[in-house]
Design a protein around this nucleic acid. Structure first.
Lengths: 204, 204
DNA sequence: CTCCCATTGTACCGATCGGTCATTACGGCA
DNA sequence: TGCCGTAATGACCGATCGGTACAATGGGAG
């Protein structure tokens, strides 16, 4: 669950992230989730972190960089976790349940970041938006492979890709109504959604 | 499929909408869908409609009014259509299929407006946002009643409300990937989604 | 003590923000 | 002809936008 940024110059490995920068990322995610990327000014981000605008720009390179880091960090975590599940769980039904739980837990625990990730893509430059949508495709591919495995195991029916997009949308759209402190926790919702998915794609 | 605005002062019925204002609403919806509400300036809206900023403000009262009209108009249409379907189709399964088709067709035909409606709620003032989320609840209630009718008819199982929220999210989230000129049209996608919903909630 | 460097605050840049203003042009009507 | 409501113009308002320049601060190492 580490947050990474690209090495600014060289080709070597990952860079240490300062606690200040981490806090800036968290605070910015909350503000962006509340009022949208364009609706939040950099001075506001600075004040919310206890920094002035000048001090803030010592830790970040641009406002859009901030958005890019938020959108990529947790989507990468999601993919990493999902790959681990896919590699360790051969049974398609069980794998789907685990993927479902993991997805809802990540959305619930990092609601602000995920909201930004799903809702503020349009504020990125074309190339960076392409990179983020690529991550979304990568994640979808893991689910797609799981469905294919279920078909091979005879428990799932083949479904068009638009159905998978819809089923994932069921999870992704939850950022708009999910209350992490609501009556149902992420695990319960994840299990309920997994039941929906399994019934929807079960072989007849 | 008419667009309405509230009577500015009196209590009498609806007001005539000028063709210019209608065009402003459509153009603004496209711009907001592209770059977000806060990412679009009023001068840009004016230029895109062939009006100057001053002329634009003759037709609208504020930028946020524009957003409010966009979000409410088509959501109201959606509710009106859904109510008509619910009133005319007693069979729960068939009603669900018709609701599914109508929803996907509206999203597909008015993709910009629906994108704004789902994604830019946060830019509204608290009271207006409450009004729009109220419309969303009204729409969800129609689906909820349909599911309840199916339970009464013995064809559906009772499902928690979070499952209905998820299933509707399957439709709503489609604004992010739907291509109205894609290989599958709205009717096909609506039917595919209806099949998913029916399998997911079918009585065992 | 001195040097160094990470960190921060302040002032400032040109541009744009949403919104208002007085003014003008036009077409129908009496 | 004079009048009026509709429509459009473009300048202007104070405020804020994202970003930069630079001096000051402070603590640790030599």
């Amino acid at each position: 669950m580490t947050v990474q940024t690209k090495d600014p110059k060289g080709a070597s490995g990952e860079r240490k992230i300062s606690p200040t920068r981490l806090k800036v990322l968290q605070v910015a995610a909350g503000l962006f989730a509340d009022r949208g990327f364009s609706g939040v000014g950099v001075n506001e981000i600075g004040e919310a972190t206890g920094l002035g605008r000048g001090a803030l720009y010592y830790h970040i390179s641009s406002k859009e960089d901030l958005l890019y880091d938020i959108t990529t960090a947790y989507m990468s975590n999601l993919i990493t976790d999902a790959r681990a599940i896919a590699a360790s769980e051969p049974d398609a039904v069980t794998r789907l349940q685990k993927l479902s739980r993991a997805l809802m837990m990540t959305i619930s625990e990092h609601l602000s970041e995920m909201t930004v990730c799903f809702r503020e893509l349009h504020a990125l430059t074309a190339e960076r938006r392409k990179a983020v949508t690529g991550l979304h495709s990568d994640y979808q591919a893991i689910w797609s492979e799981t469905l294919a495995a279920g078909v091979a195991q005879g428990v799932f029916r083949p479904v068009p890709s638009v159905v998978l997009k819809g089923l994932l949308g069921m999870y992704f759209y939850s950022f708009l109504w999910l209350d992490p402190r609501g009556p149902q926790n992420a695990v319960e919702i994840g299990d309920a959604f997994a039941e929906v998915v399994i019934k929807a794609v079960r072989a007849s």
